[in-house]
């Protein structure tokens, strides 16, 4: 009834809208372009003022970067810690979600409340005592210490409990009649049915770990245990003025996550939106 004609007219409004969008995209993307441009600009010419067309592009900054820091190791560390954190949070979260959604036991709501309460405590409150705890256990400056605070997440437990409760009980019962145990029901019936929620939790865990800065900053000293944000900030401290090297480091840390984003864009955006609405 109110539909526009099949051929959209090119109105002034529309042209302005697209111009605004293009300008907006430029503002969002230019910093990335500029990061790449700076990283291939010869060191001496940086002070001459910015130019998009680099005269003698060079990879010197990357050579300096890889000579200063064990960059490959740092990239691998970031991925390994993120993947380990995702795997652990999925397993611990789904299992706890199953316990809260499907097993009835005394004090269930109290225990669940205690889980939720851990969500209310910001990392900043935990950083000092957690650092001390790691020191007492002689675990500071180890991979384990990087992973420790993100092995289980109450947010993951909460989201997965919700997802499991949405699975019809009749499906479990059918499995029970076949003589399946809780572990079997969990693995064969529940897990395949909550994949979308598992994806959401995985994305949240991955991004939290990939971007994590304060905790690694506190607990890690050795360059070969650093993650990308930490390595970059260390670089920044050492070379306050070597912007080409700092930007080269930024490129190295943006590329892997950008590839992940391009491959899983739909899931990432849907996963984040899923946490925002009810």
């Amino acid at each position: 009834m109110f539909r526009a004609a099949p051929h959209r007219r090119i109105t002034l409004r529309r042209v302005l809208l697209y111009l605004a969008l293009v300008a907006c995209a430029a503002v969002m993307l230019f910093p990335f372009l500029w990061t790449v441009v700076t990283s291939i600009t010869p060191e001496g010419t940086l002070a001459n003022g910015p130019t998009l067309l680099v005269k003698d592009p060079t990879l010197n900054a990357y050579r300096t970067l890889f000579a200063t820091l064990p960059m490959w190791r740092i990239v691998v560390n970031s991925f390994a810690i993120a993947v380990a954190s995702v795997a652990l949070q999925l397993v611990t979260g789904a299992m706890a979600g199953y316990a809260f959604a499907r097993l009835s036991f005394r004090g269930r709501s109290v225990v669940f409340g205690a889980y939720l309460a851990t969500l209310m405590v910001p990392l900043q409150v935990l950083v000092v005592p957690l650092f001390i705890e790691m020191k007492l256990l002689s675990l500071q400056d180890t991979y384990f210490s990087l992973l420790a605070p993100s092995m289980a997440s109450a947010l993951g437990v909460f989201l997965l409990k919700q997802a499991i409760e949405a699975v019809p009980r009749e499906l479990d019962e059918a499995a029970v009649i076949d003589g399946a145990s809780h572990l079997r029901i969990f693995a064969k019936v529940i897990v395949p049915l909550i994949k979308p929620s598992l994806a959401t939790v995985a994305i949240l865990a991955f991004m939290a770990s990939w971007n994590s800065f304060l905790w690694p900053l506190v607990v890690i000293r050795s360059p070969e245990l650093m993650t990308l944000p930490l390595g970059l900030s260390a670089l920044h401290g050492q070379y306050t003025t070597a912007w080409d090297v700092v930007m080269a480091g930024s490129v190295v840390s943006i590329v892997p996550i950008a590839v992940v984003f391009v491959l899983a864009q739909r899931h990432i955006v849907a996963g984040l939106a899923h946490t925002g609405i009810k």
Binding site: F32, G249, S253, I254, A258
Partner: peptide, 18 residues
């Protein structure tokens, strides 16, 4: 949409440096 979203997945340290 992707252009606007790209900075979201970039870590704070990189954003601050850039």
């Amino acid at each position: 949409r992707a252009a606007v979203f790209l900075p979201v997945i970039t870590s704070w340290v990189v954003v601050a440096l850039v």
